[in-house]
Amino acid sequence: MTTLADLAVGASARVITVTGQAALEQRILEMGVLPGVLLKVVRQAPLGDPIEIKVMGYSLSLRRSEAACIEVEVQA
């Protein structure tokens, strides 16, 4: 299983599922990261965490621990 946390900077992926504690899952979904959506890892912070992704046309920062709740399928 690949999660968003596993992706390298620059990689694009499609969301398969969002798991995690209810409140976290809900927040991730509300921000537009839901199954079927395309996203791209833009960069990571200088200290390696958090990461920045582009989704639904905007930039979202999330921690690696949160990204690990997002299962993705890497796009070529």
């Binding site: 409140a23 976290l24 927040r27 920045e52 920062s61 999330l62 949160e66």
Partner: peptide, 11 residues
């Protein structure tokens, strides 16, 4: 907090 997600928009 049950969980405090740090999902933050970078405007």
């Amino acid at each position: 907090s049950k969980i405090t997600p740090f999902l933050m928009e970078l405007p």
